[in-house]
Design a protein around this nucleic acid. Structure first.
Lengths: 365, 365
DNA sequence: CAGGGTGCTGTAAGCGCTTACAGTAGCCGC
DNA sequence: GCGGCTACTGTAAGCGCTTACAGCACCCTG
């Protein structure tokens, strides 16, 4: 790799002039510029990021931290983020914590390589987040409550959950169960809160039929099994995400229970499988790529726009009404025509946008 | 962010000593070391990667280039890569080319930030690959034929495709069609070659019933539609990947054709949906995480091991025999118990490992 | 007691760039 | 003919670190 010195020698100028040319910056005589450009081309010179970054004190890169890349959730968000960042000329570093114990150290190390950090969920301790933010590093938190003056970006949960639950009540269900762990994440907590709010509004109690479950399929299966074998079987299962819902499908199948006739099921996330499984799964779609892109824009605002005061953004979600809730939509699921985003096809069947921050329906939480 | 100078002042030593302590390197008196450590802790000093990298001439990071993160394929490989790299203390930069025209420039830019590059598929021109490799940058190619002295890592296609095709012939099929574009990628080309080899071996011709299709569902749908409406309908569709197979499901459903009774279908990749769709999809699983991890190991060998001569690795694939090929396995798909890798459950139903480089079955290509 | 280790620490030269500042030349107006 | 522009280019000081080399005690050996 040739350095700026070789180019300077080759073109018969000083390194300052080469720098000026290669950064398209200050004024350089047309003739000199030509000579330098020629030398750069001849030598195949490419400025070293390291030298440049060191001199300018900026990395031109940001990092994104996620617990695991499993499932469409994280990869979609990362894709949206990467795309937006690349468009803005920024590089992206990724770090999966994978439940490692020294995740905080890895994040701190990563922090030294970037101009800003996006952190998804509860992968990093509040302590580290606050410390980094205090150190002046721009931070965007995804699906996580505000901390240390960082920006946050999330999707609407509460109202969507309430609307979904009301929808089930509208189908005549009176014994509804929630499967998920409200404490595991803010998202799950808000879905649970929305679920409860809808029940309370309809004069019902939720607790007796609610069971904890992680976001994993097999835990959803276990929870559903317990519920379905109980004395008073719930007739509708509101699951904290699609994978849990998938688990309940298995549990229902084992017991010869038909969905949605014997028990209605709903999920959350609208993973690809939701459209293919039988019956198709009523769920809530989150705009994951948009969430990633939003995070990138928030980051840019801080890194290049100089914004300091934190922003907290919320993106709307969308109810995807399919068959598992009891709706009778015989519309066959057509193959996906959207070549650019196979995981985000146009809504099939009925769908309902749920805007954030709207309390129009009067749910109290 | 405090620098090494502040720490040195605080501890009353020179920056060289601080450096020695913070790199755990050379000999430093126990007492001095303690004082420096204390100063580091007091100031919350974290060595600048930039300075360190500039001085050492190494980045401590590698990059991975992919066309798009859509679908489980790329995200799984990236996850495997990231995990392995993080374990080795390396950072990972990602770059999606998204069909951008100036992808080559982005890659060149990325190349300036890393010690090595992993490139998936045909995202980057051979020209750039060769140029970078010639420049001394370690490169690992994934699912792509060798170029410019770079390492390659891929999964077994040919034999698996031949075995799969033979399996269908064993079910009595005589009119088999291949849906996919052999020219779009080496993977697809090899699957096509294996398909043809199996047919030739059984004394059949393939061409009449073969139709081109990208890896997208809607193109698979279109191709299948055309085939199924043709004069001589094929009875078995060998699809280049699962998404194409999903498209054929839609086409069959529209025409009232039952799978596998009227037409058998197979896919490739074993995406999550394959186990949930009805009938469950017979397909071929690629060890995607392992592929990513392998790429990382190859990279390490070059970056730290100093290896120079290229290596070309191939990972075995696994036939996942389910119902869509005509097998009668009534084993219900149990929910996934593997909490760590939901997308890589233990094989369900029959499965057959296909080892690379084995020509034991005598397929000639 | 001189000479030569040994053990530790400091000095300073980079690594490749950006950029403030200082020149230098040519040109204008008076 | 000279001061003062303007337009350009060079000098050099960093950015934060690593590391070869030098220096300095101190101790040991002969």
């Amino acid at each position: 790799m040739p350095t700026i010195y070789e180019v300077a020698r080759q073109a018969g100028v000083s390194i300052a002039t080469v720098s000026r040319v290669s950064t398209n910056g200050a004024l350089v005589a047309e003739e000199t510029r030509g000579r330098v450009l020629q030398a750069i081309a001849d030598l195949g010179y490419q400025p070293s990021r390291l030298g440049r970054s060191l001199a300018k004190g900026t990395h031109g890169a940001s990092g994104i931290v996620f617990p695991d890349l499993t499932g469409p959730y994280y990869s979609e968000v990362i894709l949206g983020y990467e795309d937006q960042a690349a468009t803005a000329g920024q590089s992206v570093l990724i770090l999966g914590t994978h439940g490692r114990e020294h995740a905080d150290d890895l994040v701190r190390e990563l922090a030294g390589r970037v101009d800003g950090l996006v952190i998804m969920g509860r992968t990093v301790s509040d302590e580290v987040v606050t410390a980094l933010a205090d150190g002046g590093l721009p931070i965007v938190l995804l699906a996580r409550p505000p901390a240390g003056g960082a920006d946050t970006a999330r999707t609407e949960n509460l109202l969507a959950a309430a609307t979904l639950t009301s929808h089930l009540i509208g189908h005549g269900h009176r014994r509804l169960a929630f499967i998920g762990d409200p404490d595991s994440s803010p998202d799950a907590g808000e879905r649970w809160a929305g679920f409860r709010a809808a029940l309370l509004r309809a004069g019902m109690a939720a607790a007796p039929w609610t069971l904890r479950s992680s976001f994993r399929e097999h835990e959803g299966y276990a929870a559903a099994s317990e519920l379905l074998d109980g004395a008073t079987r719930p007739t509708a299962l509101v699951c904290a995400n699609d994978e849990i819902a998938l688990g309940t499908y298995g549990a229902c199948q084992e017991r010869g229970l038909r969905i949605p006739d014997d028990v209605a099921v709903t999920g959350w996330d609208d993973i690809a499988i939701a459209r293919y499984i039988s019956p198709t799964l009523t769920t809530v779609r989150q705009p994951l790529r948009e969430l990633g892109a939003l995070a990138s824009r928030l980051m840019q605002e801080r890194v290049h726009g100089g914004r300091v005061e934190p922003r907290h953004e919320m993106l709307p979600t969308e109810l995807m009404i399919r068959l598992s809730c009891g709706c009778e939509s015989s519309s066959a699921e057509a193959p996906d025509k959207d070549t650019k985003r196979p995981d985000h096809p146009a809504p099939l069947g009925a769908s309902e946008k749920v805007a954030p921050r709207s309390r129009a329906q009067g749910f109290e939480v």
